[in-house]
């Protein structure tokens, strides 16, 4: 039995004539302890896919099985690191993590929980900033808090939705290493969604491209047979790396071209009305 299984997933937004099929026929299996990266263009439905797996959304048809059980709701077993940090701005770093830890371990005493918060803040080396609010932190620091929050709940699987997309290249490199460190320590299962092929190759065991939506579907998988721990500079000269990278980019470029050639299709914009508040 696979650890995570996606069977014939379709996801449609809207109803009737205005409906758009965002994802169609998605099939994916992941084993325990595996690190899988899904690479795709922006707007190809990556976030929708993530939300289906973490339980925030339900598929229109098909099923998501987590350890053989259908996913119908969010669970503490699947930790999520969001694209835009999603820290609560009125809480400090410590309080943000404490809130998560308290939900994950409701039986533990406050002292034990605080210890846990401190441990994870230290892990992402933010101990001096534990009493600061997210607004006072840089983008990279905020994302580290988000990482610490997700991991402090001790999830079996980490789902990352473009966690490093908004960061500069240097910070991104550091955080990639940090995430890999944590992952390899406990050998958790990890799913990374990214738009950066290099990031995928550096971090994952398998890369699966997502063909752009509407009707996005998963492409053929690429195995990364590079030994861990991987070295970024050494990897540049690795023939395996070059081969895989070229293959993936070529594949993505081909889809891009395909996408351009069918661009004469006229898309009907959905008729949207602004949300009405009591005003």
């Amino acid at each position: 039995m696979a650890y995570l299984e996606l069977n014939n997933i379709y996801k449609t937004y809207g109803e009737g004539e205005n409906s758009t099929e965002v994802l169609s026929n998605i099939n994916l299996t992941m084993d325990e302890g595996e690190f899988v990266a899904i690479v795709g263009f922006t707007g190809s439905g990556k976030t929708t896919l993530v939300n289906l797996i973490n339980g925030l959304l339900q598929p229109t048809s098909g099923e998501v099985l987590f350890k053989g059980v259908p996913v119908t709701d969010t669970s503490h077993e699947r930790g999520v690191i969001f694209q835009n940090y999603s820290l609560l701005p009125w809480l400090t770093v410590g309080q943000n993590i404490y809130m998560a830890v308290k939900e994950a371990f409701p039986k533990d005493s406050k002292k034990v929980l605080m210890e846990r918060v401190k441990e994870y803040v230290a892990m992402v080396s933010l101990s001096p900033a534990i009493n600061k609010r997210p607004k006072e932190l840089s983008g990279g620091m905020r994302q580290r808090v988000a990482v610490a929050r997700a991991l402090a709940m001790n999830p079996e699987m980490i789902i990352m939705d473009e966690p490093l997309g908004a960061l500069d290249a240097l910070t991104r490199g550091n955080l990639q290493d940090e995430i890999l460190n944590i992952w390899s320590k406990d050998k958790r299962t990890a799913l990374l969604i990214t738009n950066d092929v290099d990031e995928g190759i550096y971090m994952a065991d398998r890369i699966i491209p997502l063909k752009p939506g509407p009707n996005a579907t998963l492409g053929p998988e690429f195995k990364i047979n590079i030994e861990r721990p991987r070295d970024k500079t050494a990897m540049n000269d690795n023939p395996e790396y070059k081969k895989t990278r070229n293959a993936i980019i070529e594949y993505l470029m081909d889809i891009g071209d395909e996408r351009k050639t069918v661009s004469d299709v006229e898309y009907k914009l959905p008729e949207l009305t602004p949300k009405s508040f009591v005003a």
């Binding site: 925030l56 969010t74 669970s75 999520v80 999603s86 609560l88 709940m153």
Partner: peptide, 14 residues
Amino acid sequence: SVDKDYINVAKVLK
């Protein structure tokens, strides 16, 4: 009009 992200956080933290 609470930010959808915060609601998602609340859901993920259960």
